[in-house]
Design a protein around this nucleic acid. Structure first.
Lengths: 146, 146
DNA sequence: TTTGATTAGTTGTTTAACTAACTATATGCC
DNA sequence: GGCATATAGTTAGTTAAACAACTAATCAAA
C-alpha cells in the first residue's frame, strides 16, 4: 500500500488547493486595494517576462504551465492594457515574441513587494525548515504529474 | 525579517499553486477517461454532500471555500445533470437544502477511488513524514489567510 | 521539390470565479 | 407592530481554463 496517506476526509484540500487559492485571493485583493488593474494570471505572465523579456508565446506556455489558448487570451488582454506588445519573429514567421512596455516595467517592484508581503502573511508562524520541506514536496508532486 | 523565505524566483509556484493545479488536471483526465461527465468543481460539491446530505447552499459555500454565485451555478449545473435537487427549507424560506439523487450516490465509490489513485501518483516517492509536514504547513497557510 | 508531419498561434464553446447589484425572507430593536 | 439590518440566494458582466478544431509556417524525407 504505497503512500496511502489519504483516508477520506483528508484528500480534499490537496486536490482543491485551498492554500494556494487563499494566497492568490489575498494577493489579488492587495492589487485591487492598490488600484493596480491587474489579475493574478496577468501578473504571472509579466513575472516571467521580467525574468526574460521577448520570449515566444510557446515559451510562456511552458513557463506558466498554461495551454496555448490561455496564453493567447492573456497576451490579448495584456496588449489591451498596453503592458506587452507582440512582435513577429523574423527568423520564424509563425512566432510572436512578447515584449514588455515601459508601463509594465514600472509595475515590477510594487507587485513583487505585494507578493512577498502576501507570502510572509501566509507563512507567519511557520518555521523555516517546515517551509523548506513543504516546497520540496510540492515540487516533487509537480514533477510526478507533469 | 520574519519568514523571508521567498527571494525572487521562488515565490511563483507558491502563489500559482502549480502542484494542486497538476493534481486537479490529472484527476479531471481520469474522470474524462472513465467517461464520467463531471468537473472537479462539481465533484468537490458532491464530496461534501456525500459526507453530509441535505445542507444549505451557504453551508456548501463554507465547505468548498467558494462564494455564493459560484455555488448557485454549480448547483444549477448539478441539477441539470440530475445529480442533486434543491428543496426549499420549511423552517426558513430563504434557504434551499441540497440533496443528492440516487445517481449521485452511485458516483461516490468510483470517483473517490480515482482521487486516491491520483494522490498516490502525486505523492509516490514522497516519504510519509514529509507529507505530514506539508499538510500541516498548507493548513496553517489557509488558517492565516482565511 | 513536392508531400506529409510538426509547430506556433488563433477561434469557438462550455464551465467556473469574482464583483456588484438585486430580491426575498428573517431578525432585532424601539 | 413597524422599521432597520442582516442573511440566503439569484442575476449580470468580465476574466480565465480546458478542449477541439482550425490556419499558417516550417521541416523532413522521398
Amino acid at each position: 500500500m504505497p503512500n496511502n496517506q489519504f483516508k477520506k476526509g483528508e484528500l480534499y484540500s490537496f486536490v482543491t488547493g485551498k492554500a494556494s487559492t487563499a494566497i492568490a485571493r489575498r494577493l489579488q485583493k492587495k492589487f485591487n486595494t492598490a488600484t493596480l488593474n491587474l489579475t493574478i494570471e496577468q501578473w504571472s505572465v509579466l513575472y516571467h517576462l521580467w525574468k526574460k523579456d521577448g520570449i515566444s508565446q510557446q515559451e510562456l506556455c511552458n513557463a506558466t504551465f498554461r495551454d496555448k489558448p490561455s496564453i493567447t487570451r492573456l497576451v490579448d488582454n495584456l496588449e489591451k492594457l498596453k503592458l506587452v506588445k507582440r512582435v513577429p519573429s523574423k527568423s520564424d514567421r509563425r512566432m510572436n515574441m512578447v515584449f514588455l512596455t515601459p508601463e509594465a516595467l514600472k509595475l515590477q517592484e510594487q507587485t513583487m513587494e505585494l507578493a512577498e508581503e502576501t507570502l510572509n502573511e501566509a507563512l507567519l508562524t511557520v518555521p523555516a525548515d517546515k517551509i523548506e520541506v513543504c516546497k520540496e514536496v510540492l515540487q516533487i508532486v509537480y514533477d510526478n504529474l507533469k
